[in-house]
Simulated scan of single mutants.
Amino acid sequence: MSAAAVTAPWQLQALGRGSARELVRELAHAAAGAHTGVLRVTGEPGGDLHVVHGLVVAVASPGAPGVRELLSRPGRISTGVADLNVVALMSAVDGAFAIASGWIGGCQWQTLPAESSVPQDSMPPVPGVESWWLLLEVERRLCALAHGRISPHRNNLLLTERGRVLLSTPGTGQRGEILLWADGRRSCRDISMLLSRSLYAVTVEVVRMLDDDLLAIAPIEPERPAATESAPASGGRSLLPRRRRGASGINDTLPPRPPQPQQRGQRAVTPRKPERTS
């Protein structure tokens, strides 16, 4: 299967919309031309895809734990070079998933020598995977989470009452680790970093816990405008915003009409009092 084949919209429905098309197109062109360089993806969280001769050897993103973080997870036992290669491959796929599940602003190539295109901390780099395989893995993950309606980066998580009860129960395992950090200020990305676990694995578990009513999505608080005037000295009054004269800007377009002098013989108009009826 060629890299250009994955650009078909019926094969990449999740990656076939918006700015993700540019990422798919650039990787397809890199594979076709055996390009070497770093494809920098701007956005939130964004990241870098390291490509050598058209093959993706590493993906680094601030939205997902890297190889070092995944290896540092407590209780993990390495079994040698083969295990390191598996972890490096998982990190590359997870980094690509983090980029695609966020907001993509654009892509730009940084041309570097082949020996400089591999990050020094990849421990070790992926031997090299076809871009179409990487994109299909990302597509599969995005489709699997489509029903969850949660952003791994923007939505913060809260404990429900059932979640608090489960957290107080011993032996909760990996769910207990997630519940421990669900304080309304952390997202799936934050928790995956704290636990040194794959972003996709944490997001999948969070979706299941949302379905089980163990977690809830914290409401997004609107940004409060900066105070322009000092608060009144009296603490009993409600702090309502004061309207400043001319704040609407209407006088910048239509200047106020100057006061007109009263002409001689003109009677001043006074409001008529309502008549009393029996």
Rank of each mutant, 00 (worst) to 15 (best):
residue 121 D to T: 09
residue 121 D to F: 12
residue 122 S to P: 12
residue 122 S to I: 10
residue 122 S to R: 12
residue 123 M to C: 06
residue 124 P to V: 06
residue 125 P to R: 00
residue 125 P to G: 00
residue 126 V to W: 11
residue 127 P to G: 03
residue 128 G to H: 03
residue 129 V to G: 01
residue 130 E to S: 15
residue 130 E to Q: 15
residue 130 E to V: 03
residue 130 E to H: 13
residue 130 E to M: 10
residue 131 S to F: 01
residue 131 S to P: 07
residue 131 S to R: 00
residue 132 W to S: 14
residue 133 W to A: 07
residue 135 L to D: 07
residue 136 L to Y: 11
residue 136 L to K: 13
residue 136 L to Q: 15
residue 137 E to S: 12
residue 137 E to P: 04
residue 138 V to C: 03
residue 139 E to A: 07
residue 139 E to N: 06
residue 140 R to M: 08
residue 141 R to P: 08
residue 141 R to W: 09
residue 141 R to I: 04
residue 142 L to K: 03
residue 143 C to Y: 06
residue 143 C to Q: 14
residue 143 C to I: 14
residue 143 C to G: 09
residue 144 A to R: 13
residue 145 L to E: 10
residue 145 L to A: 13
residue 145 L to V: 11
residue 145 L to P: 07
residue 146 A to C: 09
residue 147 H to G: 09
residue 147 H to E: 15
residue 147 H to D: 14
residue 149 R to M: 11
residue 149 R to A: 14
residue 150 I to T: 13
residue 150 I to Q: 04
residue 151 S to Y: 02
residue 151 S to E: 01
residue 152 P to I: 12
residue 152 P to V: 11
residue 153 H to A: 08
residue 154 R to P: 00
residue 154 R to L: 07
residue 155 N to D: 15
residue 158 L to V: 06
residue 159 L to M: 09
residue 160 T to P: 00
